[in-house]
């Protein structure tokens, strides 16, 4: 799916065509986001026997493979700051920026995953993969010092446009 249609999906457009000025605003804000985004990732290959997580969701996602990748990705603090700026000065742009950033971080993850022959990724919070695993993934990867990614007490990733996930690889 194209990035634009992803963004429109996040904005709730389903199949509707956006008004021309909004379409233009999306393009303009996309450039702004790109200029402040600093995508960073950190990953680790592990053997299944060393998989620190268990449960049905994780087990199913492993598809009987022998190896898996644990990774974390973030667009960095600049995107959060830009969205905060728009939230106080221009809420409609903030909503659009939010959707663009969401599409962008997914692309970053897809690209990382594209380097492998892999099965779909799962993130903490899906199924019975507990949200608390977020913190373990960051710890395993030293994501705080490597890519500046950490969590809040309530287990939210900060910077907010970030993902942690695992996926199985066929090797």
């Amino acid at each position: 799916m194209s990035r634009k249609s992803e963004i429109l999906r996040y904005l709730g457009y389903k199949k509707a065509v956006p008004r021309k000025d909004i379409d233009g605003a999306i393009d303009r804000i996309e450039k702004e986001i790109e200029s402040v985004a600093e995508p960073r990732t950190v990953k680790m290959k592990i053997s299944i026997e060393n998989m620190p997580f268990c449960g049905k969701t994780v087990e199913k996602a492993m598809h009987g493979c022998k190896k898996a990748i644990i990774f974390a990705a973030t667009l960095g603090a600049g995107v959060d700051r830009l969205i905060m700026q728009k939230e106080c000065s221009n809420i409609s742009e903030a909503v659009i920026a939010q959707a663009i950033a969401a599409a962008l971080i997914e692309e970053v993850c897809d690209k990382l995953q594209g380097e492998y022959e892999s099965y779909p990724r799962v993130s903490p919070g899906y199924g019975d993969f507990p949200l608390a695993a977020q913190r373990d993934i960051l710890k395993i990867l030293s994501a705080d010092t490597k890519i500046g990614l950490s969590t809040t007490e309530a287990l939210m990733l900060v910077p907010t446009k970030s993902v942690t996930a695992i996926f199985a690889i066929k090797e």
Binding site: L11, A25, V95
Partner: peptide, 11 residues
Amino acid sequence: VFLPQLLMSAE
């Protein structure tokens, strides 16, 4: 009307 439009009108 979609959310970005609603908010632009609000602004």
